[in-house]
C-alpha cells in the first residue's frame, strides 16, 4: 500500500465518496484549507469529490502549486475512480468500505455524526482497530491525514460464505460435501 508514496510528479488522486447519501459535513471538511494543505503536504496532487445528494458545492481549482479540486454528484464509474485513486476518503457505508478494501486502496472512513442510530461507526471502528483503514470525523480529518502512515495498514483478507452454507445444509439434513 505504501509504495505509491514514493512516486514523484505523477498524478496522485484523492477520491472522496459519499455514496448515495447526503453528507455535506464531509464535503465541507475536504474542501477546507487545512485538509487540502494536509493532503498536498502528503504529496497528493488531485482531489476528486463525489458529493452525492449534498447541497454544498466545493470550490473547483486548477492546482499548480496547490491541490487540483474537482467534483461531481453521481457517476456510473465509481469503481474506475476508486481504482485510479491513491487514497480514498469515504462515508461509512459498508458497500463503499468493502469495495475500496477489495481494491487494496488506502482508506479513511469519515463517520457521519449527524445520523440517528449511527451503527455505521461500529464497522468503521472495528476495521480501524484491525488496521485495515483509518477512521475519522469531519473535524479530525486533517489531523488523521497528517498523522497517517499508510505502510502500517494491513490488507483486508476476503471473507468466506461456506460456513453459513454448511450450517444451513446441516440443519436441513443435507449431506455435508464442502
Amino acid at each position: 500500500m505504501g509504495n505509491e508514496e514514493d512516486r514523484d510528479k505523477e498524478k496522485r488522486v484523492v477520491f472522496v465518496t459519499v455514496g448515495t447519501t447526503c453528507f455535506d459535513a464531509l464535503v465541507r471538511a475536504v474542501d477546507s484549507n487545512n485538509v487540502k494543505q494536509a493532503l498536498f503536504a502528503k504529496g497528493y496532487t488531485d482531489l476528486l469529490i463525489q458529493m452525492g445528494r449534498g447541497s454544498y458545492l466545493p470550490s473547483k481549482a486548477e492546482g499548480v502549486d496547490t491541490l487540483a479540486v474537482d467534483y461531481f454528484t453521481f457517476s456510473s464509474s465509481i469503481a474506475d475512480h476508486l481504482r485510479s485513486a491513491s487514497l480514498v476518503i469515504s462515508h461509512a457505508g459498508s458497500g463503499s468500505i468493502f469495495e475500496t478494501l477489495r481494491l487494496g486502496k488506502p482508506l479513511i472512513v469519515v463517520v457521519n455524526e449527524d445520523l440517528m442510530d449511527n451503527h455505521q461507526s461500529e464497522l468503521a471502528e472495528e476495521l480501524a482497530d484491525r488496521k485495515h483503514l483509518y477512521c475519522a470525523s469531519p473535524q479530525t480529518l486533517h489531523q488523521t491525514i497528517a498523522d497517517m502512515d499508510l505502510s502500517s495498514l494491513f490488507p483486508y483478507s476476503p471473507g468466506d460464505a461456506t460456513p453459513v452454507a454448511k450450517h444451513i445444509n446441516n440443519f436441513l439434513g443435507f449431506p455435508d460435501d464442502y
Partner: peptide, 28 residues
C-alpha cells in the same frame, strides 16, 4: 431457527447466535 452473526464479539453478546465469520468476498 438459526441466527448467524459475522463478528465474534456479537456472538458473545448474543450466545444463541452462531458466529460464521465474514461473508464479504474478495470480489463482488
Amino acid at each position: 431457527d438459526q441466527l448467524f452473526v459475522q463478528w465474534p464479539q456479537l456472538q458473545r453478546q448474543y450466545p444463541r447466535a452462531t458466529y460464521v465469520g465474514r461473508l464479504i468476498e474478495a470480489s463482488d
